[in-house]
Design a protein around this nucleic acid. Sequence first.
DNA 1: TTGTAGGCGTTATCAT
DNA 2: ATGATAACGCCTACAA
Lengths: 351, 351
Amino acid sequence: MEERSTIYEVAKRSGVSTATVSRVMAEGKGFSAATGERVRATAAQLGWVPSGPARGLASRRSGIVGLIFPDLGGSGKAEEESALYVDQVIRGAERAATSVGNAVLIAATQSGSGRRLAFSVAGQVDGLVVLARSLPDEEIAALSKIVPVVVLANLQTRRGHDYVGADNRGGSRALTAHLIGVHGYADLIYLAGPEQSPDSDERFAGFQDTLRHAGQRVPDRPEGTGGFTEAGGDQAVRALIARGRRPRAIVCGNDEMALGALTALRAARLRVPADVAVTGFDDISAGRHVRPALTTVRQPMRDLGERSVRLLLDRIADAEAGHRSVVLPTEMIIRRSCGCASRPMISRGPR
Amino acid sequence: MEERSTIYEVAKRSGVSTATVSRVMAEGKGFSAATGERVRATAAQLGWVPSGPARGLASRRSGIVGLIFPDLGGSGKAEEESALYVDQVIRGAERAATSVGNAVLIAATQSGSGRRLAFSVAGQVDGLVVLARSLPDEEIAALSKIVPVVVLANLQTRRGHDYVGADNRGGSRALTAHLIGVHGYADLIYLAGPEQSPDSDERFAGFQDTLRHAGQRVPDRPEGTGGFTEAGGDQAVRALIARGRRPRAIVCGNDEMALGALTALRAARLRVPADVAVTGFDDISAGRHVRPALTTVRQPMRDLGERSVRLLLDRIADAEAGHRSVVLPTEMIIRRSCGCASRPMISRGPR
DNA sequence: TTGTAGGCGTTATCAT
DNA sequence: ATGATAACGCCTACAA
């Protein structure tokens, strides 16, 4: 790595002006095939690529979109799993961006220092996708004064922004309806995720919807909390059992907690689904391998990432357009833990 | 989002020069506390953040490191799992970068268009971490003429570059030794991953090492191939059985293939580990939940990401230093699928 | 199809 | 502790 060469050098050696080099590198039109070839050749020979910063400065467009997500927990096992969701979103975002020649800058907000990070990122990108729970609403509002912002999976922050999310409520509704309608269960309980999780809240709302519709007693709060982790689900269910509670079905806010629930129930010598049915949410791969296999709801995590970037790109292209909301459907995946005995089935959620 | 304001505006409103504003935003020294406060306030009020591109241009440092990884497969289930590895690396890289105020730009090379992508990314970052299988060696060489490059998990491309990888060979060696030494198995086979996978090759080499050392017959090629996917492992083992082959133990190149192998063996009414032992590699979460639980080797994927970014940052800071190699240890995780009956145990790999 | 030249918003150097 | 002012490397009208 010598001193990095510049467009001037490439221009000189190619016997053209910098403008022409610029045109060639932009892959636009406005130059003869021969010229293009020649320029590309000397560029390759010199090992030159246009400087992103210089380009960005001159064109007011960096070609980079940012993705901000919460850094769940510190390190260790637990995190690795509950992070699955975010990873898929990242991949989706990457794909959507790359397909149109953009790149993705990722940043996890550690609790606390999130603000600084977010604003430093804001200066480098053309727009931002902000995942739920990564920043408080005020900060998101402040950010959106600086760059275009798409809010992802955070229904509550939806208004005044472009929004992309999954139909958590509908999926939860369908799942609960299956438990009640097909299996005839009564006495279901919902096991919630972390405090401020919009996803968990929505799923609980769907749960309530269906109970109400079925004429069952509707709890106004979840009966337990497992922080979206396997250990949390385990503990919550143990606690439940310890205080003599033994519901017919446990609707877990996500799959990890459901796995934990399975463990706790086994430890208590309760059989699933014969004594207690269990369901999850997300469809992580472990749910397919555990016994009984987990009935759950799948949300299109990768699509969420893709759609949010696309929406963002649209927004960048047209700052004046009205705000848009995209809600992606979820699908119920029936396996054994709900009480079904047949082979796996898939059914689309409502909407 | 009005017209984005500039440093000039902030300077004027704060009654200072742009130089001072710059100093304040760089969080350096050289200004009074009062001035700093005042500048920060007007910046916040104006909703101004320094332009990344302008900054990068002036300082020749974007504060962004790039991570290039292969885009395994198209879409669909299979990919989601084998991608786990990459996701962890991404998280590790993100963490290491963020902790020192840098950001991470990610880019997946689709087969073919990889070159263009990589070079466009190269222009925007201070350095690049290149994962195995994302680019052919020549391109990596070319890239490294443009920006500092750290090669990740690709032993073969190691020379002439900074390198970070895991001790796959040692882990595989330890695992195979366990199978032979503790369980006394003979007639082991190795199930390989994708063609050009350095990881799979290294693991096979470790497998060979131990067989040789134990005086068993040493195959010069893996006896099957499963492309690192669950379906691939399933098929490979079915094929094996179909042609009358029934080894005592199947050492799989990764966990996904091991899961597939389990399925195939069950379908053939062979019991694991009684009839055939099975091992994996990576320690994905599904391996803990499947029955029998998977004996495997864990490689510190997140650490790989962290270390490679740190190495890269060092390299950026000192372009002249000699090349460094970092090999991270792996650890064997003993569960049931190898034939052990006791509770899970962990043992460090060699080195 | 190609060239000329001003400007993009910072940082860094040199003064003060 | 603060200012003035060249770079920084490219893009993009505007011309030719």
